Amino acid sequence: PDFTLHWNGITIHFKGIDEEQFRHLRELLDRGVSLEELEELAKELIK
């Protein structure tokens, strides 16, 4: 499924991740993950 997340004025689209992965990403963003960390995470998910 696809998810869209609005965070700090940025709209991020996640394609092909499951709800569990999306929930994990939201928790990280709510905790204050940096954009660099988010990019690293995205690379991991894409593999």
Score class of each variant (00 low, 15 high):
residue 7 W to C: 03
residue 20 E to W: 14
residue 22 F to I: 03
residue 10 I to F: 06
residue 22 F to C: 02
residue 29 L to M: 07
residue 41 L to Y: 13
residue 42 A to C: 08
residue 3 F to T: 01
residue 7 W to N: 02
residue 24 H to Y: 15
residue 36 E to P: 08
residue 31 R to K: 11
residue 32 G to N: 06
residue 40 E to N: 09
residue 2 D to P: 11
residue 26 R to E: 04
residue 28 L to R: 06
residue 18 D to I: 03
residue 40 E to T: 09
residue 46 I to F: 07
residue 9 G to R: 01
residue 6 H to F: 08
residue 14 F to G: 01
residue 45 L to W: 14
residue 44 E to G: 08
residue 25 L to T: 00
residue 26 R to S: 06
residue 37 E to L: 09
residue 10 I to C: 07
residue 25 L to Y: 04
residue 36 E to K: 12
residue 5 L to Y: 04
residue 14 F to Q: 00
residue 40 E to K: 13
residue 6 H to D: 06
residue 3 F to I: 03
residue 30 D to T: 13
residue 44 E to V: 07
residue 27 E to I: 13
residue 46 I to M: 10
residue 37 E to W: 09
residue 43 K to A: 12
residue 23 R to M: 10
residue 44 E to K: 07
residue 30 D to N: 14
residue 46 I to K: 05
residue 21 Q to W: 07
residue 38 L to K: 00
residue 6 H to I: 10
residue 19 E to F: 13
residue 24 H to R: 14
residue 36 E to D: 11
residue 1 P to R: 15
residue 16 G to Q: 06
residue 17 I to Q: 01
residue 20 E to Y: 15
residue 44 E to I: 09
residue 42 A to V: 13
residue 16 G to I: 06
residue 27 E to R: 15
residue 42 A to S: 05
residue 29 L to R: 06
residue 46 I to C: 08
residue 15 K to H: 14
residue 41 L to T: 04
residue 31 R to P: 02
residue 38 L to N: 00
residue 40 E to S: 09
residue 40 E to F: 09
residue 42 A to G: 04
residue 43 K to H: 08
residue 43 K to N: 09
residue 30 D to R: 15
residue 18 D to Y: 04
residue 3 F to G: 01
residue 25 L to K: 00
residue 32 G to D: 03
residue 15 K to V: 13
residue 40 E to W: 09
residue 8 N to Y: 04
residue 30 D to W: 15
residue 27 E to F: 15
residue 17 I to M: 05
residue 10 I to Q: 11
residue 11 T to G: 01
residue 11 T to H: 14
residue 32 G to W: 07
residue 30 D to K: 15
residue 37 E to H: 08
residue 22 F to S: 01
residue 43 K to V: 07
residue 13 H to V: 15
residue 6 H to S: 14
residue 30 D to H: 14
residue 5 L to F: 06
residue 29 L to T: 02
residue 37 E to T: 11
residue 12 I to H: 03
residue 19 E to Y: 13
residue 10 I to V: 12
residue 12 I to N: 00
residue 17 I to E: 02
residue 31 R to G: 08
residue 23 R to Q: 07
residue 9 G to F: 02
residue 31 R to S: 11
residue 47 K to H: 13
residue 24 H to N: 07
residue 13 H to W: 11
residue 19 E to G: 11
residue 45 L to P: 03
residue 44 E to D: 09
residue 25 L to I: 07
residue 1 P to L: 14
residue 47 K to V: 14
residue 30 D to Y: 15
residue 2 D to C: 13
residue 32 G to Q: 04
residue 11 T to L: 06
residue 46 I to S: 10
residue 16 G to S: 05
residue 41 L to Q: 03
residue 13 H to Q: 12
residue 17 I to V: 05
residue 15 K to Q: 11
residue 42 A to T: 05
residue 22 F to P: 00
residue 3 F to P: 01
residue 3 F to M: 04
residue 46 I to N: 12
residue 12 I to W: 05
residue 22 F to A: 02
residue 20 E to K: 14
residue 39 E to H: 11
residue 40 E to A: 12
residue 17 I to K: 02
residue 32 G to M: 08
residue 29 L to C: 07
residue 37 E to V: 10
residue 47 K to Q: 14
residue 45 L to Y: 13
residue 17 I to R: 01
residue 38 L to R: 00
residue 21 Q to T: 14
residue 17 I to L: 08
residue 47 K to G: 14
residue 13 H to T: 14
